[in-house]
């Protein structure tokens, strides 16, 4: 069952991300991005990372893409004036390089093997919480400082007069 689900959600994720970069209308791209994020969350669930899956949907699908859509809605470029993207030499090269990178990843995985299935509860809220507040406490706290700096930066950029 698991391999089938992996293929299905993996295909949705890859297909969705191709649609994100190829759609002409930015809102269509944003909606495909939600689909892709959902498929990735499903892949997390298959790897027992339930907490990560929930956070993925809350933060990315529920908040970040909402901001993208806000911007798209408020700028609201008429369809006739949307730029037409062409396949240039650099973009063609980028596709080839990306293909090589995937191939390389596959070869490395084949050579060294992948980590086995994680324990059933390793992605539960309890396990993640315990890991965050013991082994990774310093990184966790430092991240909070980083977030605080980002919040202050956002306010400083947005407000003309503080």
């Amino acid at each position: 069952m698991e391999p089938i689900l992996f293929i299905v959600f993996g295909a949705i994720a890859v297909g969705g991300s191709i649609m994100v970069v190829t759609r002409r209308h930015p809102l269509a791209s944003a909606l495909y991005l939600i689909l892709t994020l959902f498929a990735v969350a499903a892949l997390f669930v298959l790897r027992q990372a339930h907490f990560l899956a929930a956070i993925q949907v809350i933060v990315y699908a529920g908040a970040v893409v909402v901001l993208f859509i806000f911007v798209i809605m408020l700028i609201n470029v008429p369809e006739s004036r949307l730029p037409v993207e062409r396949l240039t030499g650099v973009r063609f090269l980028a596709v080839i390089v990306a293909g090589l990178l995937i191939l390389e990843g596959a070869l490395v995985a084949r050579r060294f093997g992948l980590a086995g299935t994680p324990a059933a509860d390793s992605g539960s809220v309890e396990a993640v919480g315990r890991a965050l507040f013991t082994d990774y406490l310093l990184a966790f706290e430092v991240t909070s400082v980083l977030l605080l700096a980002a919040v202050i930066g956002a306010i400083a950029l947005a407000k003309k007069k503080i």
């Binding site: 929930a54 949907v57 809350i58 699908a61 859509i69």
Partner: peptide, 25 residues
């Protein structure tokens, strides 16, 4: 009976906003 119960609720209810945004736009 999800291990992440309440987080699941937040994740899904956060998506309800798309219906409203899309309809408005």
């Amino acid at each position: 009976d999800l291990n992440v119960g309440i987080l699941y609720i937040f994740a899904i209810s956060g998506l309800a906003v798309y219906g409203v945004i899309l309809a408005g736009w």
